[in-house]
Write a protein that binds this DNA or RNA. Structure first.
Lengths: 111, 111
DNA sequence: TCGCAATATCGCTTAATAGCAATTCTTTGA
DNA sequence: TCAAAGAATTGCTATTAAGCGATATTGCGA
């Protein structure tokens, strides 16, 4: 733990972050957080093209972030590793802190 | 907390993940974890081109992940928000679990 | 002020990939 | 067995960014 990673391990980590570096994919994950969804449901909910949702779901699936299950004619996707939400929480916290620091810099100060 | 993020907030989050989606930048962060480093030191340690290290440091700096301080002719960079290491730990954990699950699938089973 | 060392920036090439329209594949119900 | 619905794939365009060599900038010592 805490040891230094070799180049190819860094690439693996970078790859995982890369999967999360896309607003559409994050939107999908956020939606799936509330429960499983079919492709069609996601298309409607996110107001996006079916082809693109399907493609991004493929990326998420390949990365092992979501699971997939066929139900008749539909395919249902669901969160496979809730760790992603911890990740998002951490990042949101950072963004919030940064914004507050930013706001701070503009607050009037007594001299 | 836990509420749903709008598109532009998702973009902000995706942007932060994007900064971490690069092995070279992760290598820089990993090195800085042990302590501040000048650009030149990083160039030597990571065996990379000065122009590229400098560029990636710029990205990390803009993202608020590292701080910068001039010392004479050199510029020293250091970690600004250790949160990133929590992020990396989480991701490493996931990669490890995935790998174990993968190994599991190839282990002989009694029938 | 000049020259050097350290860093940053510029212009470029190359490689990925998001999103789209069109098409194909898959499953079910008639 | 066929038609239609749902999902995946394909071929494409446009955008983005990593890495490179070359050059510009910055700060220091002589």
């Amino acid at each position: 733990m805490g040891r230094t990673l070799a180049r190819d391990q860094l690439e693996a980590v970078a790859g995982q972050f890369g999967v999360l570096a896309e607003p559409t994919r994050l939107a999908i994950l956020q939606s799936l957080r509330e429960g499983g969804r079919s492709v069609g449901e996601l298309v409607v909910e996110l107001e996006a093209k079916q082809a693109n949702i399907s493609k991004q779901l493929g990326v998420l699936f390949s990365a092992g972030l979501v699971g997939r299950e066929r139900h008749g004619n539909e395919v249902h996707y669901s969160i496979r590793d809730p760790m992603i939400f911890e990740l998002c929480e951490l990042v949101c916290g950072k963004i919030r802190r940064d914004a507050e620091r930013q706001a701070e810099a503009f607050r009037p100060r007594r001299r």
